[in-house]
Nucleic acid binder design. Sequence first.
DNA 1: TTTATATATTGCAATATTACGATAATAATT
DNA 2: AATTATTATCGTAATATTGCAATATATAAA
Lengths: 107, 107
Amino acid sequence: MGVTKNQIFTQEQNELSKVFKVLGHPARVAILQYISKQNACICNDLVNEIGLAQATISQHLKELKSIGLLDGEVEGKSICYCINVKKWEQLQQLLNSFFNQTRINCC
Amino acid sequence: MGVTKNQIFTQEQNELSKVFKVLGHPARVAILQYISKQNACICNDLVNEIGLAQATISQHLKELKSIGLLDGEVEGKSICYCINVKKWEQLQQLLNSFFNQTRINCC
DNA sequence: TTTATATATTGCAATATTACGATAATAATT
DNA sequence: AATTATTATCGTAATATTGCAATATATAAA
């Protein structure tokens, strides 16, 4: 027990919920908003901006990367994290289809 | 440790991530899609449709109710669960604002 | 009232997530 | 090469989530 039974759901349901899940933490929402505000971003800034340890931020960044939402580019000593705008729009569309299709036949 | 530090985030970030989190499980996505397909819904149908125990489905329904997405109306012996369309649209708009505002300044 | 049916709640075990310190890895600087 | 700065990974503790059986609750039917 304790394991999500992904086998019994469709690929669409698993993919969709995976995206929702990654966005389902305030730190990750905050990271995305901060990166957007900055036009570019260095991880160390995030550690100062958000009140979490460096290791924790790094972990959250990894999860955002896992759905392709963030690109990390090495820039000297540090890494510039950017939102992958193409993926961003793709995911927004995915969520909107879900919202539109699901509502459409509702009682 | 192990607790999400909600205090260090804005109310908006916490609310937004809460919605994402609730939608971040394939069973809950599946439940919403099934209810939408049916026009109405009884929990017991869900137990047959989705391959999870009755107690588990009930728990997932509770979480969907926690963000106001589902209304449950007693109907004889069973309960008719419906999507709260108003809330549904409200949440869709919330997520879209997040997506639009966050992308807009990105590098 | 008893029985049957449908849903909710409780208690528990297994796994996942969150967070952090310590440490490793990488790259620029001296 | 040694030092410094930045990010990633590892190990671990605390808490949360998932899932289910058992039980409780509520309503309809007999």
